[in-house]
Design a protein around this nucleic acid. Structure first.
Lengths: 341, 341
DNA sequence: GGGAGCATTCAAAGCGCTTTCAATCTCGCG
DNA sequence: CGCGAGATTGAAAGCGCTTTGAATGCTCCC
């Protein structure tokens, strides 16, 4: 069923039918009802491509999907996507994933922009000096960054307070008497990891505790990395008495290493992990329950979608969008006072 | 830059430029070069919507993204997506995610089809009697199922041999002398879980071992579920001496429960888990290394994309597409002979 | 010399929608 | 009764591409 046919059936012009369907005010209420009824009866849907061509709006937002491992192995990503979807659904906006080889992402963004496949894009976990910011700005394709970089440009972003989160977490451990605290971080080429590193160091500095660089490590946020780094940390003497871990996934590996070393979490060693609130990694379900810095990545997705809509639909200026979300410190059973030996 | 302008610059008609760009044979080789050069120089890209409208092909394949938890919590999904992307990239085909509320998926498929937003869709982890098969068949929207159902309709699918995988795994354990074997499965409303259950039972039956229903359980494939079920199993007397687990994620929880019970994996109790080959869950990196039934979900994604392209582009008949992939049994350190007590 | 046959190119007609601009009709008021 | 304003509808012009059908030159052969 095409608009033309529908109009024919109704004995109306395409113009009127189109207007009725799209909620324009200048159509008679009775006519509108007739049109809506007919549309429903015939299960009419405007052709997406035609509408896009006519309006110039794509009705979709884009995400460039790097197909190499490094970025994707992140199980958090899917939660974020779900959050996005939750909001975008309301306006029938699609998410377009554009697969791209590792080095080729810039070209993919360019392609998305120039062929106007999408109305805006989302940038996730930017690196410290992310070149995509400049590119997109230049291309004039609206975007919202989930995270921040130190780009001098003014762009829309939503981020959680990674620095504050790890500062508070470290302070909490220091207050419990811990002095040898290890940091198991994500890769510091990503800005969030750098922020966490910063927060960690600030807290220690504020307490007059010197950072032992042998107790600071980073890697992709996997179970395996968590295990390896923790095992290495635990081999040191004196042993660290507490760990700050950048993801729940890593904390799983860390926990294995702790057990392998014959230690008990929450008594012999304390741990605080960052929790993105992913359903299959529930800190309350762990044994012992895990103390965390918590911020829902799904909620962030929803909000990013909301912001995107404001930019696209309401024409809100991206430069005015800066949201820094505070992060909760949730104390559970994995943290305790420093053990006396 | 539009086609029209490009043509003007070149002193050619749109027709010729379009043909040159799209590789039609009837254009002079020298002319084609000129056109391609100019296109590159001006960074020309055809407008996606216009092309779609003109050709009637969307240049995208769709995935309905349920935004409720149950389905998405699956970290496997993202690997599959990456696999898809790997292949689709070659032809500049997009993946369109259409967010949808839990009960509303059928409507979303319908919408995708009728508004011809996509050329085909992918169905993942179908339930035993998945209504989507009938719907899509009726809508005439091409699709490939990753998995199978017992629909009477003839549709394109690619699946791994879940039944065989768990049959072999169980047989291996039986051969090692195990008789009390627990099954920790995914939800049996999904067909893959049902198949695994079936394989498990067949192996036991073939050995004349009766299934203890108290040692068969299912749930969403999370760390937490693995922990809970295993803890319950281990409380029984006599204790199971081996476990068959439906995902690596679950096996992490199972391992925690085993350790909490003071048992040693690979000596006191054996375990085989299904491994979808997800980078952040590496069985070789576990301690002890994990015996698995292995099949790369990413490779499946790539192949599904390939099949989709064959259907869309080459017009291959979906009914002829049935691929059942064998599953490797990889024996590592988590399996051993039944312990003598 | 005159076509046949081929290689190239082009003008114009869509694809299915939205939107501008114009037309028609109705009604209230002086 | 005539007219302007307001309400409602329509014809037609795009949006930027692909593709059909026709035109133009050329070469080649009898």
């Amino acid at each position: 069923m095409r608009l033309k046919e529908l109009a024919l059936h109704l004995g109306l012009s395409q113009t009127t039918v189109s207007r009725a369907l799209n909620g324009y005010p200048e159509v008679n209420e009775e006519t509108r009802q007739r049109v809506l009824d007919a549309a429903r009866r015939y299960d009419y849907r405007p052709n997406a491509s035609a509408r896009r061509l006519a309006t110039g709006r794509a009705g979709a937002i884009g995400i460039v999907l790097p197909t190499d491992r490094n970025m994707l192995l992140d199980p958090h990503y899917i939660e974020f996507q779900a959050g996005l979807g939750e909001r975008l659904m309301k306006d029938e906006i699609d998410i377009v994933l554009s697969p791209s080889k590792a080095g080729d992402e810039m070209a993919t963004y360019r392609r998305m922009a120039i062929s106007s496949r999408v109305d805006a894009v989302i940038l996730s976990s930017p690196t410290v000096d992310d070149p995509r910011i400049a590119l997109l700005t230049e291309l004039g394709l609206p975007f919202v960054v989930h995270g921040r970089t130190n780009s001098p440009l003014d762009y829309a972003w939503l981020d959680i307070d990674n620095e504050g989160a790890f500062r508070h977490a470290a302070k909490h451990l220091l207050d419990l008497g811990h002095r040898r605290i290890g940091l198991i971080n994500g890769e510091t080429r990503h800005n969030f990891a750098l922020e966490r590193d910063r927060g960690f160091r600030r807290a220690l500095a504020a307490h007059g505790v010197e950072v032992d660089e042998d107790l600071v490590a980073e890697g992709i946020m996997s179970d395996e990395t968590g295990y390896r780094i923790t095992a290495r940390f635990l081999a040191q003497r004196p042993r660290p008495t507490a760990l700050l871990v950048s993801s729940m996934m890593m904390s799983l590996g860390a926990l294995r290493a702790i057990r392998s070393a014959g230690l008990e979490l929450g008594r012999d060693i304390s741990m605080i992990a960052h929790d993105d609130v992913i359903p299959f990694l529930n800190p309350d379900a762990m044994v012992p329950t895990m103390s965390t810095t918590r911020s829902s990545i799904r909620a962030a997705g929803t909000r990013v979608a909301e912001l995107l809509m404001e930019i696209i639909v309401d024409g809100r200026s991206p430069a005015s969008i800066h949201e820094l979300w505070p992060v909760d410190l949730v104390v559970r059973a994995s943290t305790g006072p420093v053990p006396r030996d």
